[in-house]
Amino acid sequence: CHSECLGNCSQPDDPTKCVACRNFYLDGRCVETCPPPYYHFQDWRCVNFSFCQDLHHKCKNSRRQGCHQYVIHNNKCIPECPSGYTMNSSNLLCTPCLGPCPKVCHLLEGEKTIDSVTSAQELRGCTVINGSLIINIRGGNNLAAELEANLGLIEEISGYLKIRRSYALVSLSFFRKLRLIRGETLEIGNYSFYALDNQNLRQLWDWSKHNLTITQGKLFFHYNPKLCLSEIHKMEEVSGTKGRQERNDIALKTNGDQASCENELLKFSYIRTSFDKILLRWEPYWPPDFRDLLGFMLFYKEAPYQNVTEFDGQDACGSNSWTVVDIDPPLRSNDPKSQNHPGWLMRGLKPWTQYAIFVKTLVTFSDERRTYGAKSDIIYVQTDATNPSVPLDPISVSNSSSQIILKWKPPSDPNGNITHYLVFWERQAEDSELFELDYCLKGLKLPSRTWSPPFESEDSQKHNQSEYEDSAGECCSCPKTDSQILKELEESSFRKTFEDYLHNVVFVPRKT
């Protein structure tokens, strides 16, 4: 048989008469490798580009789960590009990614509803959504962080984005990388972005840091009482949809009607710091009717980097990364020049730590249904340095008659930039024990000054392991946590139920 035959053949030295091919099969003959313009397919066939392209389009058009959109890589027609490569849609070739590779997620039936953290986790790592997304989240724990972890990498949506009755959302900033909504599939009414009845939605994105392009379709905003109209108009300008909307697409009466839409800028007039305090004062603000001013709200939190936005980490279910302080308005003076500047002394802060701070007014709604208010920009203030805590785990070892090696770990709280350490030492008198000992005694162990690591005695271990207080009263049991108490109650309830079950099964009433 021919060298490319495997198993047997019907005619000697003829690659077209093989029972099976050793390498690849091409047009009725066995070959060692697939010549151009053919590609290896499933490690035994040679196919042309049209064959591989037909497989790709067949799966793409069917949208069946589990099928493969075949691509070409290293002269092979394979189910998908290997790690580190992405497909070129024009020629199906796998090309190296520039940075992290995109991950295209194809949605069944063309859309997916995100109504819980669990459903959001199914899209973790996706960068391109081939379909439409509907966000409908009523509640949950730590929602802002969970949504950002699972949806934060999405850069492109081919269909539309719909935010509907998501009472738990305060902001859409968890879509931190969303840059493009194509609108290839539109919501009824030709809408590519749809926001309806979101009672706590206050911000779409921080438009000073976020760009969003909507290729096709219109915007729809109705019944978002805490979303200011200025935020919607800003989205029109940034996304390129200005002029597409009709009169009733953006409701003037049901958007922002319960919001404090600040239209003035508060400026800080005085800032002073110490290692654990920050004193702030800002310019006074009074609405047209000074009785509408209820006070100020001061927001602050630790910020290692200057990239904080107002609604980071917030949701309507209680999660809030900001510390909020309510401040009463100052006494009002008739003389504008003698107006008191409101302020606040922030206490209990960490030394040498940068804080993000902003302040906003708290006002009631005027009778004319106009909203007044003022808010400052987010500023960054760093507390002063102070003395560091003591170095940890000092170790001293003498390696000769004239040297001592000293080692330690950095302090747990540096409280500033540590530039150097101060080492103090003092000579001590020799131990009298060394002169009084009889060095001729056998088995004498000389006193040693070398360091030995501390260890816990058996008594201390027994005390720590004991669940009861000892007789001397030195140790006591740790208080039980809520989960331990709940577990004990469940076990007790189970024992009672099981005992009742045994009584009912074992003891049967005697027939009379």
Rank of each mutant, 00 (worst) to 15 (best):
W352C: 03
L133G: 00
R272V: 15
T213M: 08
S132D: 07
R281W: 04
F296Y: 00
T386F: 01
G131A: 08
N320Y: 13
Y285S: 10
S171L: 02
L331R: 09
T213C: 09
E236L: 12
K177N: 13
R370G: 06
N211E: 14
L153T: 12
G140F: 03
P329W: 13
S402I: 05
D312L: 11
W282S: 02
G256K: 15
F299R: 15
C228R: 01
R332Y: 10
G125D: 07
F311S: 13
S269A: 06
V170W: 14
S398M: 02
D328M: 15
R179S: 11
A168V: 11
K103S: 10
S274M: 11
H222T: 15
R176I: 07
V238T: 05
L133F: 07
T361P: 02
L180F: 09
K218C: 04
S166L: 05
R347N: 09
E184S: 10
S119A: 04
G217A: 07
F296T: 02
C317I: 02
A251P: 13
S402W: 09
S398Q: 03
N255Y: 05
Q245N: 13
L294P: 02
N224H: 14
V359Q: 00
E156R: 06
E187W: 12
E262P: 15
P342G: 12
V359P: 04
G110P: 10
W352S: 12
Y223T: 06
N211I: 05
R176Q: 14
R165H: 04
K267Y: 15
F365P: 07
N136R: 06
K253T: 11
L161K: 00
F365L: 10
L108Y: 14
L219I: 08
V104R: 02
F268T: 04
D115E: 15
L180I: 14
N255S: 09
E236Q: 07
W205S: 04
F268S: 02
L266W: 01
D289F: 01
Y355A: 01
K301G: 10
T273P: 05
E148Q: 11
S376G: 07
W207S: 08
G139C: 00
Q121H: 04
W207Y: 12
G373S: 04
P394C: 13
K301L: 05
L107T: 10
K407R: 12
N248M: 08
N136T: 12
I379M: 10
T254K: 08
L151H: 03
L229R: 04
L294M: 09
G240N: 06
L229P: 04
G313D: 14
Q258N: 02
N399S: 12
E237W: 15
T371Y: 08
L172H: 01
L280M: 12
S274H: 15
S116K: 03
K177P: 02
D328F: 07
L108K: 05
G343F: 08
S338R: 01
E302K: 13
G348T: 10
L107F: 05
W282G: 01
N334F: 07
A144F: 15
S398K: 01
G256I: 03
S239Y: 08
E187D: 14
R291A: 02
V325I: 15
N150K: 10
R179Q: 14
R247K: 10
S158H: 09
E155N: 12
L107Q: 07
W322G: 04
S192M: 03
N190C: 13
T215M: 13
V170E: 04
G110V: 03
G240R: 14
D335I: 14
W286F: 15
I157S: 00
G152H: 15
P304S: 09
P391L: 03
I232A: 11
L180D: 12
Q199F: 07
E368K: 12
S338D: 15
V390M: 10
E237R: 02
P342C: 15
A259G: 07
N248I: 04
P329E: 11
S338C: 15
P336M: 03
S319I: 11
G110E: 01
L108M: 13
E187T: 04
R164V: 08
V238Q: 14
L280I: 04
P391E: 00
W205C: 03
S239P: 06
N150F: 06
A259M: 07
E310T: 02
G139E: 01
D315I: 03
G140T: 03
A356S: 08
D384F: 02
G240E: 05
W322V: 05
K301Y: 03
S319W: 00
T118R: 08
Y167N: 13
S132L: 00
L219M: 10
S400A: 15
I357R: 00
K162M: 15
S158V: 12
S173L: 09
N141P: 04
L153A: 14
E122C: 11
L227R: 00
L212C: 04
L212S: 02
S400D: 14
L362V: 02
T215H: 09
Y300M: 13
Y160N: 10
F174P: 12
T113M: 15
I378V: 15
N224W: 00
R347Q: 10
I250H: 01
L169N: 02
W352Q: 04
G139V: 03
L229F: 03
Y191H: 10
T309H: 11
I114C: 05
N200M: 13
Q314H: 11
Q216M: 06
S400L: 12
T383F: 00
H210K: 15
A356Y: 00
D326S: 07
C317Q: 02
A374S: 04
W282K: 00
I232T: 10
L133N: 00
D115Q: 03
S400E: 15
P304G: 11
T127D: 06
N136F: 08
A145E: 05
K350I: 07
S333C: 07
K267W: 12
D326V: 02
N190Q: 12
M235R: 00
I378T: 10
S338V: 05
Y355R: 00
R369W: 10
E122T: 08
L153C: 14
E184F: 12
R332L: 10
N334G: 13
I378L: 13
K209N: 02
L108S: 07
R369L: 06
K162Q: 06
T113K: 13
W408Q: 01
F290I: 15
C228S: 03
I379H: 10
L349E: 00
Q403M: 08
K209G: 07
L108W: 08
D249H: 14
F175E: 02
L186N: 04
P329I: 05
Y300H: 14
R179F: 12
L349H: 00
E109V: 15
L147I: 09
S389T: 04
N136H: 13
C126F: 01
T241G: 08
Y191C: 09
D312R: 12
D335A: 15
S116A: 14
P391I: 07
K337N: 15
F290N: 03
S166I: 04
L392I: 14
S192H: 00
K409M: 14
F358C: 02
Y191P: 07
I129S: 01
V324F: 05
S239C: 10
E109F: 15
P410V: 15
S366R: 06
T241P: 12
K218M: 07
Q199V: 13
I181F: 01
G131I: 00
S192D: 00
D315W: 09
S192K: 00
F268D: 00
W408V: 03
I327K: 02
D367N: 06
N130K: 09
A259L: 07
V170Y: 03
D115H: 09
A195H: 06
T241F: 09
K103W: 15
S260R: 06
